[in-house]
């Protein structure tokens, strides 16, 4: 028996909008720790890891570990029927091949349940060790989204370089090239507007902008984004999901041929 009640149901709606472009089908795993997902895009270049910790739910019942295969486009269709202020409850019986999404309006005057078929999904689970990163950039998520969008109108790849001067995003294409430098800036009115750069050593890596743009679909979840970089390692782009967890996107770098 599985029953997860999330008062801030809009978080789940935003999570689905954040990942459905990158991944088509995925297994949602439920355990005592929380509700999680790990899935790669079809080309195995990018990966999304989601964790919503059990403490973040108003009610969390998971009698035994359960993996539920879902088509994310179908989940998104279901969740779009929930109001932004609705409380969302996920329910599944042991051995059932369906999951039920229950939507309650805030004043309890409307209760809806949507039952969705589960599917069998063969997915490979990657073991991602905790790593020390050479550079960690924390910046406003809207700023990062704007940079990725702007650069993708010029080129296909972005070089992200972190030095003592700041973080530089560069691209080049047929019509020309572009460089955007963001300096550390902590003298702002609100903490979420700050750009904070923690650098152990300079790092410069190249990534496909198509994936970066896809990651920025998570922007509505958090005012800030954290970009962790190490030489010759995939970048980690992390958005917090309120105080209950995170979405992390991993993207393998490109190398000069």
């Amino acid at each position: 028996m599985l029953e997860l009640r999330l008062v801030q149901g809009s978080l789940l709606k935003k999570v689905l909008e954040a990942i459905k472009e990158l991944v088509t089908d995925a297994n949602f795993d439920c355990s005592a720790t929380g509700f999680s997902l790990q899935a790669m895009d079809s080309s195995h270049v990018a990966l999304v890891a989601l964790l919503l910790r059990s403490e973040g739910f108003e009610h969390y019942r998971c009698d035994r570990n359960l993996s539920m295969g879902m088509n994310l486009n179908n989940v998104s269709k279901m969740l779009r029927c929930a109001g932004n202020d609705d409380i969302i409850t996920l329910k599944a019986d042991d051995g059932s091949d369906t999951v039920t999404f229950m939507f309650e309006s805030p004043n309890q005057d409307k209760i809806a349940d949507f039952e969705m078929k589960l599917m069998d999904i063969d997915s490979e689970h990657l073991g991602i060790p905790e790593a020390e990163y050479h550079a960690i950039v924390k910046m406003p998520s809207a700023e990062f989204a704007r940079i990725c969008k702007d650069l993708s109108s010029i080129g296909d790849t972005v070089v992200i370089s972190v030095t003592k001067e700041g973080v530089k995003f560069s691209t080049r294409g047929d019509i020309g090239n572009a460089n955007i430098v963001c300096r550390q800036n902590t003298t702002v009115d609100k903490p979420e507007e700050a750009t904070i750069i923690e650098m152990q050593e300079p790092v410069s890596l190249t990534f496909a902008l198509r994936y970066m743009n896809s990651f920025t679909k998570a922007t509505p979840l958090s005012n800030t984004v954290t970009i962790s970089l190490s030489s010759e390692l995939p970048v980690v782009v992390e958005y917090k999901v309120a105080d209950m967890g995170y979405i992390r996107f991993y993207l393998a770098p490109k190398i000069e041929d």
Partner: peptide, 14 residues
């Protein structure tokens, strides 16, 4: 020209 690496070249499967 750039070559795209894949995640499996960095992380093992579980």
């Amino acid at each position: 020209n750039c070559l795209q690496w894949r995640l499996k070249e960095f992380y093992g499967t579980q």
